[in-house]
Design a protein around this nucleic acid. Structure first.
Lengths: 211, 211
DNA sequence: TGTACATCAGTGAACGCGCGTTCACTGATGTAC
DNA sequence: TGTACATCAGTGAACGCGCGTTCACTGATGTAC
C-alpha cells in the first residue's frame, strides 16, 4: 500500500470535516474526495454514514476510556483534591494519544457536536459503549464533594462539562480572538491551565444566601 | 385573519424546529408544514432560508439587546458584585419576554447552535447587529474584576458562556435526567439558581500555584 | 356610485441539484488439488 | 508447477429522493378618476 489504508484515510478525512462543518453539513462526497478514495468505499467499509460517525468517535474514545479506567484503578487509595481529579482527565488524554493540541480540539469539537447534533443514534452508542467509565469517575467526584447535595453535584458537573466542551470546541477561533483583541498568543495548554482553576472553584463554590 | 399572520407562524415553527433539530436538519418543508403555510411563503417573505434563520434570532435578540442596553444605563453609578451583574442578565431576560422557561431554553439552544453550526453568515449577522451591547457589558465585568489579567478575564468569560449555553441548551433533557437518576424534579429557575454561584465563583477563582 | 388599474399576500407545480445508497463488476491474492 | 475457484478491497455509474428556490398565476384590497 502506497499510504495509509482506505479505512484509516476515510476516518482521518471524516474527522477533519465533521469537526469543521458538523455531521449533516458534511457529505460522503466531501469525505471521499478529501480521502482520495471511491465514493462507494464508505458504504463498503462502514455500511452507512451513521456507522462512520460512530467509528470516528470510537477511534478516540476506546483508547481513552481504556486508559482512563486504568488511571482510576491507580488512584483508588490516594487522597484526592478537585484539581487532582481534573488533572487525571488531562493525564489520560496525554496517555491515550490526545496530547496533540489540534487532535484534542477536534475531539472536543466532536464531543460538543455529539451533544448538540446527535439526534439519538450517537447518544445511544456513546452511553452504551462508554457509560460505565463515566460512572466510575462520578463516584470519585462524589467522594471529594460530600458537602454538596446530589442535585448541586449533578448540575455543577454539567456546568463544568459545558465550560470545557464549549471553549475547547472553538479553542482555535477563541485563541485567535484573544490574539486579535488582546495581542496575546496562547497555546491550548495555556487555555487548559486557565480552565482548571475555574472548574475547581465552580465545583467547590459555596452558595451565598443574600436574597 | 383567522389566526396569527403567516410571517409570525413561520417564525414560530422555524424556531421550534431549529432548536429541536438544528438548522441543516430542518427543511423548509418541515417548517411550512408545521406552520400550515405554503412552501413558497418562506422565500416570499424572507427571501431565503439563511435570512429566515437570522430573522428567528432577531426576534429574540432585538428586544433583548434594547432592554439590556437600558439596564446597563441604570446601573451606571451603582456598586456591583459578580452576582448582581449576572442577575442583570436575568432581569433583562424577564423584561424582554423571555421569562417563559420553555422560550428561554429554546433561545439558549439557538445560541448554542449559532456557535456550533453557524458557518459564517450567522456569526457575522450577530456580531454586526448586537456586538456593541456585548462590549458594554464586558466593560462592567472589567470593572469588578481588577485583580484579573485581561487574558484570565477573557477566558473566564468564555468558560461562563460555555457553562450557561451548554446546560441551558439541553436543560429539558438534563432536568429529565436529574429526575430519573436522583428522583428530583426541577424547574428552569432552580437550574439558573444553581448556575449563578457556580459562575460567580469561577469568575472570581484565585489561582493556586501548587505545581 | 361605478369602473379600471395597481398592489401585494399567498399558491401550486415544477426546476435542477446534491444527497446517501446500491449494484454489477474488476482485478489482485490466496487456497485446494 | 499448473489450473480452477473463492475471497475480498475497491470501482464506476446509476438509483430514487428530498432539498431550496423559482415562476407564472390567483384573488382580495385599495386607489384614481
Amino acid at each position: 500500500m502506497a499510504q495509509k489504508d482506505t479505512v484509516e484515510r476515510i476516518l482521518d478525512a471524516a474527522e477533519d470535516l465533521f469537526s469543521e462543518k458538523g455531521f449533516a453539513e458534511t457529505s460522503l462526497r466531501n469525505i471521499t474526495t478529501k480521502a482520495g478514495v471511491n465514493l462507494a468505499a464508505v458504504n463498503y467499509h462502514f455500511g452507512s454514514k451513521k456507522s462512520l460517525i460512530q467509528a470516528v468517535f470510537a477511534r478516540y474514545l476506546t483508547p481513552f476510556s481504556d486508559q482512563f479506567s486504568s488511571q482510576l484503578d491507580l488512584i483508588q487509595q490516594q487522597e484526592r483534591t478537585p484539581e487532582q481529579l481534573l488533572k487525571l482527565l488531562l493525564i489520560t488524554l496525554t496517555k491515550s494519544g490526545l496530547e496533540n493540541p489540534a487532535k484534542f480540539a477536534v475531539f472536543m469539537r466532536l464531543l460538543g457536536l455529539a451533544y448538540s447534533q446527535g439526534q439519538g443514534h450517537l447518544r445511544k452508542f456513546l452511553t452504551s459503549e462508554y457509560g460505565d467509565v463515566f460512572k466510575r469517575y462520578m463516584k470519585e467526584i462524589n467522594r471529594i464533594t460530600p458537602q454538596l447535595t446530589p442535585v448541586e453535584r449533578f448540575w455543577r458537573i454539567h456546568f463544568m462539562l459545558g465550560a470545557a466542551v464549549f471553549t475547547m470546541s472553538s479553542v482555535d477561533s477563541l485563541m485567535a480572538m484573544a490574539d486579535h483583541d488582546l495581542g496575546i498568543e496562547s497555546q491550548v495548554k495555556d487555555v487548559v491551565g486557565q480552565l482548571m482553576p475555574f472548574l475547581a472553584s465552580g465545583l467547590m463554590a459555596v452558595e451565598n444566601d443574600e436574597s
